[in-house]
Design a protein around this nucleic acid. Sequence first.
DNA 1: TGATGTGAACCCATTCACAGCC
DNA 2: GGCTGTGAATGGGTTCACATCA
Lengths: 226, 226
Amino acid sequence: MPDSPRRRIPEAALGRLPVYLRILGDLVAGDIVQVSSDQLAGFAGVNAAKVRKDLSYLGTYGTRGVGYDVQFLVYQIQRELGLNQSWPVVIVGAGNLGQALANYAGITERGFHVVGIVDKDTSKIGTVVGGVRVRHADELQAITSAKSVSIGIIATPAQHAQEAADALVRVGIGSIMNFAPTVLSVPREVNVRKVDLALELQILSYYEQCRADGRVAGGDADSVSA
Amino acid sequence: MPDSPRRRIPEAALGRLPVYLRILGDLVAGDIVQVSSDQLAGFAGVNAAKVRKDLSYLGTYGTRGVGYDVQFLVYQIQRELGLNQSWPVVIVGAGNLGQALANYAGITERGFHVVGIVDKDTSKIGTVVGGVRVRHADELQAITSAKSVSIGIIATPAQHAQEAADALVRVGIGSIMNFAPTVLSVPREVNVRKVDLALELQILSYYEQCRADGRVAGGDADSVSA
DNA sequence: TGATGTGAACCCATTCACAGCC
DNA sequence: GGCTGTGAATGGGTTCACATCA
């Protein structure tokens, strides 16, 4: 075991690693082999010290006076994030959103693959979305056991989200991405991440309201100010 | 001017207000008129002190020894977030995601309404999604001017996201929600929020990887531990 | 010389604990 | 007595600045 993952990566830094990874991927595609924290910071829209601190959590992979080897950095980030393996995911809910997710190329491009979609609506069962046949929610256990799925996506309406979460927990899912606008109640050991469109819109609404009122509230969460 | 918005609400607190708002909405529906910070904290999966601090940014609307008036709190949060008006939004990109968004009930339920969808693909133009006819990207200015739109949603593939952002900025959009997996380059005064599915998945991947490796990494971002 | 890696300083957010009020 | 509102303490994340090394 030459290089074991020493310390846990702080949440904030963790959220930026995929951003760096995406940029590094573009650099690889452009045959760039070296990159400095300054350049990377420019592309990512953060400052260079943050980039260096973030990358330092992975280990000391840079070369002083030179920068980072792009390919090697890609490899290290992927390894740390667990992206050197393809994670199977299961989607609960085959409505508009579930279908869009199943068809979303970004999922497979990033090394995830949808191994199952379930719904309770019998009219949806048997239809094929994103190359996967929709099955009944009762078959969740069969799907997750057969494919050792540990990541579940909730794409149901709000009123069924908790029920979906319970079902996922029951079959031993470890991580849940929740697209329903609800706070889920799950055991502590289960990871939940929420993606809430309306919530984000409401935050934008606040900033637009501030703008309209004349009070400045520049909140650039993820963009380059150029 | 009886109660003007004094201080700017911190980002972190701002992100929780929509969560409280949703819960309060449920309470209203259940004819609950009073709520304590303790109860609200329970529903939201945070601690009571945080709820009180968050609500204190709105003003001192609670009653010591009693709690908060649910209806009044709903009104105050809505007012502060600018939700007492219906914001028109425009969607750029009429692919899978754009269509799913246009059809997403949560948008209209929360007081936003899609007034336009544009695309560059002529085969999509003229089709109707979510009750709105898809128009050509060149008509963006006409749409936003006519309806004084200030919020735009980017639902294009990654390689066209920057172009979409430029177009939105050009027509005077103030806030952008970006669903493309890219860091956008926009003027400082434009608000950008990113919703990146693959990024979130990669974070879950990290936690699952940690779990598989035996290192604990419980990151519950938005759930109740019950 | 030039860029990394990192202690130290700083700043924002969370939590504590209690004064103040109903 | 009970719950809010908020200073004070704590903790995490960001930024600074520089020692360190190719």
